[in-house]
């Protein structure tokens, strides 16, 4: 059991001696500097950054974990022009329903999340693996290392898998995850998100990312979301609420399409006849 804390005057609060000493204001100032310098550069030379900055010190764990040398340009060859194959035997159909894993219903807001996986030319990525993982409705992961004092839900694990269909569609039924605190700085909170892992038709398209929910008040404060300096690029991580996906008396619906990096190989007939 996590240590929940003691009663103070009227409000129960966690007791924690190791609160980081960096403030949100300091982190926000760092993020603002990076954002401004990116926008100035964009005005100068027009080069957009479509992925996060690897060197983004406002996410403090990145400081010793980002390469300092430029990646070396190389044409993909051999296996890199192909992707591993996953099939029905890798993924059971029930794995797309994160609410159906345990005997009881998980607590929280039941949602449907669906969309298409496409390549940069708009072609569907067919019959390919999509994996998700997330916190429960209280913002707690069913992971040993998550010790934040919010309740675990015995009816929710928060891991899902599915294969895209022939038009590139994936679909999960789950619970809307809660925001959660982390130790990047004092009073750091992650906006609610679902982690996604994706494969394309080529190894070079491999992507791990996070999907967010519209209107989250924590976006501006979060160095992971803000590490994508291009405003239009980071908004691609926000799903849209879609009332047509909402099911009466059952679940609200979110739509989120995913576009993988461009492929370099010659398209085969199978790719083109989509």
């Amino acid at each position: 059991m996590p240590t929940v804390g003691v009663m103070t005057d009227t409000v129960r609060q966690p007791v924690d001696a190791s609160t980081p000493d960096v403030t949100q204001a300091q982190i926000s100032a760092q993020m603002e500097d990076a954002a401004q310098s990116y926008l100035r550069g964009l005005a100068d030379h027009g080069r957009r950054e479509l992925h996060p900055r690897l060197d983004y010190p406002a996410y403090r764990s990145s400081v010793l974990r980002h390469p300092t040398k430029d990646p070396v340009p190389v044409d993909p060859e051999g296996v890199e022009l192909w992707s591993p194959v996953f099939g029905e035997r890798d993924v059971a159909a029930v794995e797309a329903d994160l609410t159906a894993v345990h005997a009881g219903e998980p607590l929280g807001e039941r949602i449907v999340v669906t969309g298409r996986v496409l390549d940069a030319h708009g072609r569907p990525v067919r019959r390919q693996l999509v994996e998700v993982w997330q916190a429960n409705a209280s913002g707690r992961y069913a992971h040993q290392r998550d010790q934040h004092p919010a309740p675990l839900d015995p009816n929710f694990t928060g891991v899902g898998r599915c294969l895209t269909d022939d038009q590139g569609w994936y679909r999960f039924q789950t619970i809307k995850p809660g925001p959660y605190p982390w130790r990047n700085h004092r009073n750091a909170w992650r906006p609610a998100h679902i982690h996604f892992s994706l494969f394309g038709t080529e190894f070079t398209q491999r992507l791990v990312t996070q999907m967010y929910f519209p209107g989250d008040p924590l976006f501006a404060l979060d160095p992971i979301y803000q590490s994508i300096l291009d405003p239009a690029a980071r908004e691609r991580l926000i799903a849209s609420y879609d009332h047509d996906l909402t099911q009466p008396e059952w679940a609200t619906g979110y739509r989120w399409d995913i576009v993988l990096d461009g492929t370099r190989r010659t398209p085969t007939e199978e790719d083109v006849d989509a």
């Binding site: 996410y59 993982w133 992971h143 040993q144 290392r145 982690h195 791990v208 590490s227 239009a232 991580l237």
Partner: peptide
């Protein structure tokens, strides 16, 4: 020229161990 901009990546974070 690709027609669509890619969905950006994000860190795998600390809690992938129970999932991937």
């Amino acid at each position: 020229t690709p027609a669509l901009d890619p969905t950006p990546g994000q860190t795998v974070g600390p809690f992938f161990g129970f999932a991937l």
